[in-house]
Write a protein that binds this DNA or RNA. Structure first.
Lengths: 224, 224
DNA sequence: AGTATTTTGAACATTTGGTGAACATATCGC
DNA sequence: GCGATATGTTCACCAAATGTTCAAAATACT
């Protein structure tokens, strides 16, 4: 349901958290240090929650938190801090570091999942469940897109593209942004690949194909 | 969002700063010495911040700073100085050199980014989200310009021209400046090409076409 | 391993936009 | 008012962006 960033240098912890939250339907982004976390935040536009370990190489959790609060776009992102020892907790509160929640290691994955849920709810996680536009129905539960009630059989990439467009309707998206968001920030492919997928998506959308408008000299825009 | 000049003779530093600030959405101009920096400032009309290394060949950072403060057009440009050693800092302040901020090497790119952001905010540049002038609406999110609520279908060059005018409203812009800003500083084309685009832009702006005034013997000015 | 599906980008087609020469018109200094 | 210069306007050619097709490569499925 949401896109969540987990930053921790311990692979075990990262995997553990990521696996549990994935099972809750979230999309997980993983970073093994602070620099990486910041890069992910910069490049991935729609992160809805960040879980940061305090102790990390390159840049610690506080630095990343400060970065998040400084950037206008991310300033209001809910942030959960992971700390290794209970003693640090007081320090954290004393520092008024601006995090939204603290969890001390070792933690129970289920407790963590519950707190994540709370944070997302508290953040008013905009239930952007508007996925029906006329006879175009983007069904994220069934993981399919229907036109006139019939599944149009999108491939994985086409589906992700569709979701990205849906989450950014009315916004002009450059090919670069689309590549970063749908293919991943570490993908270095031809920008024109986007065009090819757009074409196929438009074709499958049939009468709704025109809803994906070309923004000449820039990229594309999904209109509803 | 903003156009920023970085002048430093060390390529590594230049690239580092440029890369980070690019990720923040800024357009970067790079100079490897003071002479080059001044040339770029002369040719590029809308530089919003200059980051100058103190120690550079040809002309050092102070000389460039003095130049900036002497020119009426650039006198108020925020300037950030980079200095190699902490000791120099006192000296700088003592000299009252007129820079807006100082950063000592080695520095954290993120700290630098944050300070840049502060300077731009302080300069009142960032909040220039005024894109509605009566019934003329310049929508950078949708990447379109509307008059009376209707998209006037600008071509890429026309759109960029419009944005440039919007960011420099009330300022007389020579054809050279316009070419440098919209076409790129490495473009060598006919100055009259600007006229052709102005004509088309005026036509599409309809009743607002007159807002682009001719400054005879010089260039054009967007008035609101 | 073998088959089916999906992804990818090169190649070509088509559409759209950019450019500057040429001519028309306006403005200025005298 | 006249010539000189600057700007407005039009248009045809060329350049660039996007659409489209396709086959090879990668991936998933069995």
């Amino acid at each position: 349901m949401s896109v969540i960033l987990i930053a921790d240098d311990e692979v075990r912890i990262r995997r553990l958290v990521a696996d549990f939250l994935k099972r809750d339907g979230h999309t997980m982004l993983e970073a093994s240090n602070g620099e990486e976390a910041i890069r992910l935040i910069e490049q991935h536009g729609e992160i809805e929650l960040a879980i940061l370990d305090v102790m990390m190489p390159e840049k610690d959790g506080f630095s990343v938190l400060r970065y998040i609060r400084e950037q206008e776009l991310t300033a209001k992102m809910p942030v959960m801090m992971l700390t290794a020892r209970a003693e640090e907790l007081d320090q954290l509160h004393g520092l008024q570091s601006g995090a939204d929640d603290y969890v001390t290691k070792p933690f129970s994955p289920l407790v963590l999942c519950a707190r994540v849920k709370n944070l997302l709810l508290r953040a008013g996680k905009k239930d952007d469940n508007t996925n029906k536009f006329g006879e175009l129905d983007i069904d994220e539960i069934r993981h399919e897109v229907r036109v006139n009630g019939k599944d149009i059989g999108l491939t994985p990439k086409e589906y992700e593209l569709m979701i990205y467009f849906k989450n950014n309707r009315g916004i002009a998206l450059s090919r670069e942004k689309i590549l970063n968001a749908v293919w991943g920030y570490d993908y270095f492919g031809d920008l024109r690949t986007v065009d090819t997928h757009i074409k196929k998506l438009r074709a499958k959308l049939g009468e709704y194909g025109g809803k994906i408008e070309t923004v000449r000299g820039y990229g594309y825009r999904f209109e509803v």
